[in-house]
Design a protein around this nucleic acid. Sequence first.
DNA 1: GATGTCC
DNA 2: TCTTCTGGCTCAAGACATC
DNA 3: TGAGCCTGAAGAC
Length: 642
Amino acid sequence: MGITKLADLIRSDAQDSISYKEIEDYTGKVIALDTSIVMNQFRTAVPNLKYLSPLTGLFFRTLTFLEHDIKPVFVFDGKPPKQKKAVLEKRAQNAGWTSPQRSSTMSQRTQDCIRLLELIGVPCIKAPGDGEALCAHLVKSGVVDAVASEDMDTLAFGGTILLRQLNAKRDSEVTEYSLPKLLEALQLTHKEFVDLCILLGCDYCDKICGLGPRRALKLIQEHRTIEEVVLNVNRKTHPIPLEWRYQEARRLFLDTPQVDRPVLTWQELDEEGLVRFLCHEKHVKEQRVRGRIEKFRSSLQDRRRQREEDKKVGRVKQTRLEQFFRVTRKRQAQSAAQEKKFDLLSDLGGDIFAAPPSQTAGSSNFANFAHFNRPTAQSNSNTDFANFDSFGNSSVPSTHFGTTHPSQSIPQPLHTGGGVTVPSLSSMAPAPTQSSKTGEDRYAALAELDSVLSSTAPTGSTQQGNVFGAVSGPTAAQTQPGLSSIQQGFAAAPSTNPFVAAGMAPEPMSTNPFQTNSRASATEMSDCLRVLWFPFVDNPALFGTGSMSMPAGFGNPTSYCMPTSFSGTFQQPFPGQSPFPPPAAYPQQPNGTGFPAYGQAKPPMTSYGQAIPGPGMSNNPFMGGAPSGPYPTGGSSTNPFL
DNA sequence: GATGTCC
DNA sequence: TCTTCTGGCTCAAGACATC
DNA sequence: TGAGCCTGAAGAC
């Protein structure tokens, strides 16, 4: 399941793309969850409650999310792609089933989960294919802020922010992976990263035997594509699998699921409905259910009150250094232990080779110090999200993540007029080395490859020679300003970091997506915001009125500021800094019942600005027909290397 | 915080 | 000689209530 | 079921 050893590889080679946070840090965020993985977790955690555990687990965990004002979106798997058949059959075999349990028809358990989630009032979406693919699509197109999954596939599918271990345990630490930072660290484009994932081993095709993560990364960094890698490995020691369908796997990862933009709404939970369903039908103890709901309500109120109070003192807190370097409880404990170790050394007369004391107690805090003046440094909890920029960026090819994050040094594929991507100059850095193979072998392989490539989809390798030639798409110079603006816009961490004033964006980081900042048009923004925020704005009763932190100006008929985060720590000027200018005034959008009409003013758009035929997806996608055939099936590919 | 229980 | 890969083994895997 | 650890085997330098 997932990508073999990818987590290890990231830990060792792209540490900066990982950050550790707490569940509180996701307050106010919309998070897509791959429901099948969540259900599996509960099923395996309590094996003797195989059936009920996913239901009760989902119930408890969802309420925990809602308590933190996290807005979950549950994504269910659709029909698995045919390329996954082998893996599913193998799993079924291991589990002692006669056939894969995962099918296009919904199991009773899935139906129960959907019913439960509807009663809780959170939206569910059925993916046309793999849930992971849709989750990734949702986050890269800005519909949600992050994907919570244990499956590393999400990154290969282009999910820009992946959260692992997002559960309700008090001391649990959420691991956040940032795809843009990962690509930057590995010096790969997304397409090259997908090839790397295929070499590591994924669910959709075999891998090259004997090629582990270290060599796979090195080879991809050197040769950029699987086709080139294959020409440069010892095929005696690393034989190419028979019927290797890597091209289909690549297409699965790169293709965007064909779905309409979902309209997400969160509603008040139906306590009586939940009691009827869980207690009367499923025989869960009523006391457990009612007790948890009561705790949920009081906890929600308490947290909101607390946030209001925090907001009041936020200006004071803002200047505290700890605000810039979040330390999770777990890491704090580790740091404390480390401090103790140094104390022991000092008891022994001090360790003259030890780091200065400031690096002990807060070592986790200061781990990112090196990035202080790097706009990509994102230690602040509220900074990686709201990738509204992807909207309206019609020039971004759909096969690449639209929410290019923060760094100009991310190797950006240049988009040619013909829809072909070529590596950026930075990706050319290690020039493809000539193989040391014997001439005969190489020429034979090249001949094979040539015949294959002439009849299959173009790859990066086929275009490498064009980098220095005429490219009809935007040039690197044209691309950079866009990146630059993204960088400024997303540099929320620097904006709260007094030490990087020089590198700060000229305009304050706007958390008001209606604010004109040239990153996306107001219409496109509003299209997105309707999904993200209006369920709350539209009906404040759903999530309480006095609880959300609104920037100044909210409720003012002449200005329309969206709720920022719930922490209330955004957009605070630093001492000595002039106050941020008030958000630009926007004509008031229809509120309340008038809002749906607003959404009809414009046909639904994909994240990249292409109009989608047909209406937006219903909140209950199981009622509406999701487009079938999520992935272009194409002709079956043969193994060009055999 | 450790342990037992959830059905 | 060092690095990398493979395969085998073990263990934890959820959330709440009570003490 | 996956992750982590350990081991021996094999390849790379």
